[in-house]
Design a protein around this nucleic acid. Sequence first.
DNA 1: ATGGTGGACTTTCCA
Length: 259
Amino acid sequence: MKLSTWNVNSLNVRLPQVLACLQADPVDALCLQELKLTDDKFPLAAFEEIGYHAVFTGQKTYNGVAILTRAPAGDVVKNIPGFDDPQQRVIAATLDTEAGPLRVISAYCPNGQSVGSDKYAYKLAWFAALRGWLQEELARHPRLAVLGDYNVAPDDRDVHDPVKWEGSVLVSEPEREAFRGLLSLGLHDAFRLFEQPPKLFSWWDYRQFAFRRNAGLRIDHILLSDTLKAVCSACTIDKAIRKNEQPSDHAPVIATLEI
DNA sequence: ATGGTGGACTTTCCA
């Protein structure tokens, strides 16, 4: 089976591309971030028409996450339990597989704006809360996959110009520490389980011809529990999607699991 | 030097 994640930066604008993407590669679950729409505006019928189910939690203008699945999903949780937050950044759901239940989480981690800002403090607090919850989720679900936009480039291989970016938001050591804190629970960066081409990123700024210059960062990740790591056979970034007309600034990340 | 682009929704916030 295949799991994918894509920050679409407005589902309104990107809906045709999401539909085309699913029809070209009908993954079992696609996690979306930055829907930028309220639940009443979610295009459920369009997904149902091509054979997908959806769970989602949105808000006006900002944030919003979803999980699209070929089979119905259950046990839905919205937001991080116990972390009071009006920003809709997390949704979890469980899929039945032949190997047993598979827990899928779609996460849109805070951007953090700039090191030392209020939004940066919120980002670090958010990661701490996420870690606490994921620890519980791992105890409940041996087959756990956490997909999304983490807004962290884990190490210098994930940065087009590490010298220029040193210490900046998305790259700073406290953010990388927070990311490693998730891995320390027993999660694995699916992309790094395999040999990868150098300078392959998942996000390129819209400005200054960043995509044309491959001036990107790898900030979208698929984290897998030990049990899923053992059955993961590939992880790729679909960089070609970023060449579309009216592209999202992010490209999808796809993991293949032999279950 | 604090820009630049894109999205949502307003004359500005957020990424």
